[in-house]
């Protein structure tokens, strides 16, 4: 029971991080970056391919790889689309996603690459007769620390202020001197770093990395930002958390029916959206952005 709750919170935390990465980029350029999946995947490959290095080095490299990949996407593809219709940008990012999957397939092969990363986290310990996995606790701690750090970054720093301003009105932010290229690049780098954190947690839990490794979590996180409200970062993170936590709980509650957890979760998502079509944290319901 306690383990189930811990699992729900930890999975929710991971999805919140993924959704936050998506939300940051959406905020500054109205781009729903489907290829966020491939940021998670590249970070995961990095972790697996460098597993013989000290863990810290391996983690740093994976953050660098995902951030670089995010910057490259921005530079080579998304930069030319600024101000385009969000639907066009979404489909481009879908194309970028498939393209990178195929590239990964060519480079790493279609079969999973695997290596045990951070083996120290795979065990369990007992508190008051209840067995608890180390991974779930570490994940929760990691997610909380990073969410707090992100909260600080967004609410208390100049960069965060610029990100918030740009999310509500980019044009005016530029008129005040906010450097658009630098700000958008920062958002991509941060989203890459967040993807690397998500990758780390996932690789520890399941070190079988294939070209589609980041896909499922990204689709769910995307649904999360819709549930939470696309126009606010808190909404994005909250939506991601809900999707992750609900999915985890459903896996326990449904027992043998857990193969349908995915479907049931979407039923819950649909109910939430019926009540609040603009997402949980939206103020204006459905009318704000058609």
């Amino acid at each position: 029971m306690i383990q189930a709750i811990l699992d729900a919170v930890s999975l929710g935390g991971v999805y919140a991080l993924a959704a936050l990465g998506l939300g940051l980029v959406f905020g500054v350029m109205r781009l729903v970056n489907f290829a966020h999946a491939e940021l998670i995947t590249v970070a995961s490959y990095t972790l697996v391919m460098t597993h013989q290095f000290p863990l810290v080095v391996s983690i740093v490299l994976s953050v660098v790889a995902a951030s670089l990949m995010a910057l490259l996407m921005e530079l080579l593809a998304y930069r030319r689309l600024r101000g385009s219709n969000p639907a066009t940008m979404l489909i481009v990012s879908f194309g970028v996603s498939v393209l990178l999957q195929k590239v990964y397939e060519l480079v790493f092969g279609a079969l999973p690459r695997s290596a045990s990363v951070a083996t120290g986290l795979t065990g369990a310990f007992t508190v008051g007769g209840v067995s608890i996995t180390i991974a779930s606790v570490v994940t929760i701690v990691l997610a909380v620390v990073i969410l707090l750090a992100m909260g600080y970054l967004i609410e208390r720093t100049k960069l965060g202020l610029q990100l918030r301003a740009a999310a509500s009105d980019f044009q005016t932010a530029r008129l005040l001197g906010v450097r658009s290229n630098r700000l958008i690049a920062s958002a991509f780098v941060i989203s890459g770093a967040l993807a690397a954190v998500v990758a780390f947690v996932n690789v520890v839990g399941n070190p079988q990395v294939d070209p589609r490794f980041g896909l499922d979590i990204t689709i769910l996180a995307l649904v999360g930002i819709v549930v939470g409200g696309m126009n606010s970062l808190r909404g994005s993170a909250l939506g991601g958390f809900i999707v992750g936590a609900v999915l985890s709980l459903l896996n326990v509650i449904l027992g043998n029916g857990r193969v349908y957890a995915y479907s049931w979760m979407f039923v819950i998502v649909i109910v939430i959206l019926l009540v609040r079509p603009g997402g949980i944290l939206s103020k204006f319901a459905t009318k704000e952005r058609v």
Partner: peptide, 11 residues
């Protein structure tokens, strides 16, 4: 104050 702080960006 946040609005004003943003204004400082252009100095």
């Amino acid at each position: 104050i946040e609005n004003l702080t943003l204004g400082l960006t252009g100095r």
